[in-house]
Design a protein around this nucleic acid. Structure first.
Lengths: 217, 217
DNA sequence: ACCTGAACACCGTTCAAGT
DNA sequence: ACCTGAACACCGTTCAAGT
């Protein structure tokens, strides 16, 4: 089952699979080696150290994201890319906290930023507009995913009953507005946190469009 | 220097100071004990374990944020609160990644959410509008701070020269748009990543105001 | 070139013992 | 009640040794 020859690619893939299954805490050099049917120290022949492995895993994440085309359709392209960012980060929940602490961008990271900047630039954005639009869109996208990962419950209708039943309701006593939110808003038909993403993204894109058309910022 | 009597509060404060100085990696139970002039195992008399200590530290973060008043001035209040969130997270760079992985909200956390929801609710927002506005504003605020913490350089004009000189320019070869951004946009007078925050926040607040006035969402 | 075993300097935490 | 020392089961990583 373990590949005959250990390669850096195999180590990275196994590291990602391991983090997907057991979280970042479950990813230890020793456990990773065990998974690959090899001794812990063998890994160091393909990867400088654990930090380097994490850097490589992060770059793989960037490689999975659908890049925007630079064909002038900035809004549709960045919208599609944003949905892809969210999908990728959902399938690798360990990635976002990790991206935050890595400061050595790999090639896929650079290509990713290049495509995003290029998409806005080719659509006629000035330098200042590119900087503003890119910062605001990504703040929203990454921030939204960050919030999703923080939710103590899966969003969706079933969450509501959990809040009320699981003694979670007791914790809320004394917090009238949270009580209202938990009892009146979350259980409302059709409410689900993740459904706020696309309208929120459109709100941001509308704002950008508005600013650019006016030539402001 | 170390307090005569060890208290939970003293342990939490020392933990925060330690994380401020040496990052989350530098915060070990053993080092924390040393700082308090005590043996490692003494800490466990005031804190169940390290996880519990981190939960308590996160709740202290929420306590530091200026809460919005529920006087109907939702926009001004949430704007002020958002600036406070950013300021607090800047002074405790370890906090954001940590808030993400804690799922047992403490009392300050609950009070914080209660105040935010109350601020919107008292201003006449419907349940669905509160959910949408709160999600979008916080996605932007936390996402922006997240991006700031990821920047490989301090934002600001000095950053520009660093990019070009420090061999960072070499890494950019082949990425034409990034090259343009690094050479033309970042060094431009007045450019600084952190200056995008307030205009970005206003863009989001404008969007919320627009949606609420129209009664949409 | 690639893999290994033993060893080092760390972790968080348990437990029995001290005052 | 509060603090401690020794010990346990882990880490990442170095280094000398094997093939």
């Amino acid at each position: 089952m373990p590949p005959r020859k250990l390669t850096q690619d195999a180590v990275i893939s196994a590291g990602m699979a391991m983090a997907d299954e057991s979280g970042l805490d479950g990813l230890t050099m020793r456990a990773l080696a065990r998974r690959l049917g090899v001794e812990a120290m063998s890994l160091y022949h393909h990867v400088a150290n654990k930090e380097a492995l994490l850097d490589l895993m992060v770059d793989r994440i960037y490689r999975e994201i659908e890049l925007p085309q630079a064909r002038g359709q900035w809004r549709a392209e960045l919208r599609r890319r944003s949905l892809s960012v969210r999908a990728v980060l959902h399938s690798h929940p360990w990635a976002l906290p990790l991206m935050e602490s890595r400061h050595r961008p790999g090639p896929a990271n650079l290509a990713y930023h290049d495509a995003n900047i290029g998409c806005l630039r080719e659509a006629g954005f000035t330098g200042a507009q590119v900087a503003f639009a890119y910062a605001v869109i990504d703040a929203f996208v990454y921030g939204f995913v960050l919030q999703e990962s923080t939710l103590p419950f899966d969003s969706g209708p079933e969450a509501a009953s959990m809040i009320v039943t699981d003694g979670f309701g007791d914790a809320l006593r004394g917090y009238a507005h949270m009580m209202w939110f938990a009892e009146q808003v979350i259980p409302a038909p059709g409410y689900s946190f993740d459904r706020e993403f696309e309208p929120g993204l459109d709100l941001v894109l509308d704002g950008i469009e508005h600013v650019v058309l006016r030539g402001a910022s």
